[in-house]
Design a protein around this nucleic acid. Structure first.
Lengths: 225, 225
DNA sequence: ATAATACTCGAACGCCTGTTCTGTGTCAAG
DNA sequence: CTTGACACAGAACAGGCGTTCGAGTATTAT
């Protein structure tokens, strides 16, 4: 017959250490040292703290940077810092060209004119790319299911694959629009996102400038606050 | 005549240090040491790094925990921890009721079934509230400018003010819908977000269950990645 | 020119911290 | 009883790290 001393994987000691790391991190903005953990959890020896820390690492509750001071960090509750800052470079509306930022602009973003998006929300490996955001002005994009005030996040590009939602400038028509892009035999098909609406066709002779690929749309439904 | 050596507040050296701290933090999950900064920025003396760090602290670009190893952290680009974790409790579609989570559910969110939203994106003081997210299934919400696959974030509530976008369950019609809510003299007007579409009117005798107020809509336009 | 300021270097000091090793007591299995 | 895994203490070691000081050089103002 075999009896376990502590119920299962995590004993009371483990939990207390976990809690302490979390609260310490919140308060000090950086992780505690082994000795600080020991002090709080009434462990007089650093080796014992190390002992538990090893277990917590094996069980996946924490990560450790060995040899490095205060190299403990919680795994689960702290995926933080994983936010993406995207510069808000202007507005997008039917009658105006799309303001695509130059590469130089990406370095000097102004915190006020940018939005933050959690990385976990980002489509796969769109992360790390140069993205920019535009605020939709007017109701000219409703056929793309994008409303006035919405924020569209795009990645600058000149070409698109079939099925991509792109922002295009139709210089012949002097118009900016958001559509799904399909290249067909002798023309381009620009399909509205709203399935009840019909596509428009652009002859390949017509000027069609793809400005970017839409990565995300964010709609804040706040009202007079 | 007065010439400034470096353009304004931040010189090239300052900027490089700032950039390095940011990239190091991303890669190592913890801040660099003074010596590591010096190595990267071609500064041979730790005192010089300290010299610049002091300036960056005074100018408010970084925060320092003196005496503590790797106690540098960016202030501006790292308002981190300011993310909101919202439980994804299910799907919303025309033919199905809305799964509103019980209060107890909010505590035990599963990281996998939740999304993170930067607080700066949140409508004013929606922060700290109990919010939940639903994934839109089907194209039945297109009249609300919400497409298949979109994520709607709502705040549970039973009543709405005029102009709020609400998620309602019309039990008489056995239908879930997202509409702008207006209370009129003898009936409710449910206005589609798409301005080209007509509102529907619900008599006050009909059952109209408001399940929540829409706070945000997020559309990820990723395609087969 | 001269002085003040900004910037840079190198080295040494000393604390902080993670690591490791030895030793003790408990408890259950053989 | 012996064995061994487990939980813990204490001490010592070695390296990492922030701090400080003394000194030198360039740039700018007076």
């Amino acid at each position: 017959m075999m009896m376990v001393r502590k119920s299962k994987g995590l004993g009371e000691r483990h939990q207390k250490i976990l809690d302490f790391i979390a609260s310490y991190q919140r308060e000090h903005k950086h992780p505690p040292s082994i000795r600080e953990i020991g002090e709080d959890c009434d462990i007089s020896s650093t080796s014992v703290v190390n002992y538990y820390l090893d277990q917590l690492e094996k069980s996946g509750n924490i990560e450790r940077d060995r040899k490095i001071s205060r190299g403990v960090r919680l795994t689960a509750p702290t995926p933080m810092g994983d936010m993406f800052r995207i510069p808000m470079v202007g507005v997008i509306q039917a009658g105006e060209p799309i303001p695509v930022p130059s590469n130089a602009d990406f370095g000097s973003f102004t915190p006020e004119d940018s939005i933050e998006v959690a990385m976990s929300l980002m489509p796969t490996k769109e992360k790390g790319k140069e993205l920019f955001a535009l605020k939709v002005q007017g109701e000219s994009m409703i056929d793309a299911m994008v409303n006035d005030g919405d924020i569209v996040i795009l990645r600058p590009t000149q070409d698109a694959r079939n099925g991509d939602m792109v922002a295009v400038w139709l210089s012949d028509r002097n118009e900016t629009t958001l559509k799904f892009f399909f290249k067909e035999k002798d023309k381009y098909r620009l399909q509205p996102a709203n399935p009840t609406m019909k596509p428009i066709y652009i002859d390949k002779s017509e000027a069609l400038e793809i400005k970017g690929k839409v990565v995300m749309v964010i709609r804040k439904v706040e009202r007079y606050n």
